[in-house]
Simulated scan of single mutants.
Amino acid sequence: MNIEISEVANLPSRFGNFNVKAFKEGEKEHLVVYAKKLDAIPLVRVHSECLTGDAIGSLKCDCRDQLEYALSLIDKEGGMVIYLRQEGRNIGLLNKINAYALQDKGLNTIEANHQLGFAADERTYEVVTYILEYFNIKKINLLTNNPDKMNSIKDIEIVNRVPVIITPNEFNSGYLDTKRDEMGHLL
């Protein structure tokens, strides 16, 4: 992999005081937010970009809640969030908004992706292994509900899966049901 890596910078936030480092993979620039001290087996959240949820606060998904939960937990227990630039399960912002429009007409998240010519989930996780190896991390406690993430992270031992429990709302309960029932998420 040809990856360009930034310097380390300090990132004080409302969740805690973290270090940050960017990893540029082609056109995608991923961010690692991590505790000042990393344990031998750190808590790790692999989070895919969700502009509408993470930045705007959309209630259609649980992305922002998961990210905020992870950052709060990492502040308390140590570890890192690997923020992957894979908007809309890696179909991009334009296609994600088109998928939202199809969902407004009654399709679920998977049906909308298929209607647009995409798989249910187009994300990849090779860069996660690269990032963890860069930090000399061989074992992690993975903060996830997604079994595909667990199966896609190679050459790193996942000691424990730590669930991310988020309270559904009236706008995302169907989305969460689809993730559980059709994508196998452990909700």
Rank of each mutant, 00 (worst) to 15 (best):
M1I: 06
E4Y: 07
E7G: 13
A9C: 10
A9H: 08
A9S: 11
R14K: 15
F15G: 00
N17V: 15
F18A: 10
K21G: 08
F23K: 12
F23H: 05
E27M: 07
K28T: 02
K28Y: 01
K28E: 06
E29M: 12
V33I: 15
Y34S: 04
Y34F: 15
A35I: 04
K37N: 13
L38I: 15
D39V: 07
D39E: 13
D39L: 09
H47I: 11
S48N: 09
E49V: 10
L51V: 09
A55S: 10
I56Y: 01
G57D: 09
S58Q: 05
L59Q: 11
K60F: 01
C61G: 03
Q66C: 03
E68N: 14
E68F: 13
E68M: 14
S72P: 00
S72W: 00
I74G: 12
I74D: 03
I74P: 07
D75P: 03
D75E: 14
E77R: 11
G78V: 01
G79Q: 03
M80N: 12
V81F: 02
L84E: 01
L84F: 08
R85H: 09
E87T: 09
G88P: 08
R89W: 01
N90W: 02
L94K: 07
N98V: 07
Y100G: 05
A101L: 15
A101C: 03
Q103I: 04
K105Y: 00
G106A: 10
N108D: 15
E111H: 04
E111Y: 12
E111F: 07
A112C: 11
A112P: 04
N113P: 08
L116T: 13
L116F: 07
G117S: 13
F118C: 10
A119C: 00
A120M: 07
D121A: 09
E122V: 14
E122W: 10
R123I: 13
T124N: 06
Y125W: 13
V127P: 02
L132D: 13
E133I: 05
F135Y: 15
N136I: 08
I137Q: 02
K139G: 11
K139Y: 14
I140T: 15
L143K: 01
N146C: 06
N151E: 14
K154L: 14
I156Q: 08
I158S: 07
I158Y: 03
N160R: 13
V162C: 09
P163F: 05
P163S: 11
V164N: 10
I165L: 13
E170A: 07
G174M: 12
G174Y: 08
L176E: 02
L176N: 07
D177Q: 14
K179E: 00
K179R: 06
D181R: 10
L186E: 11
L186Y: 01
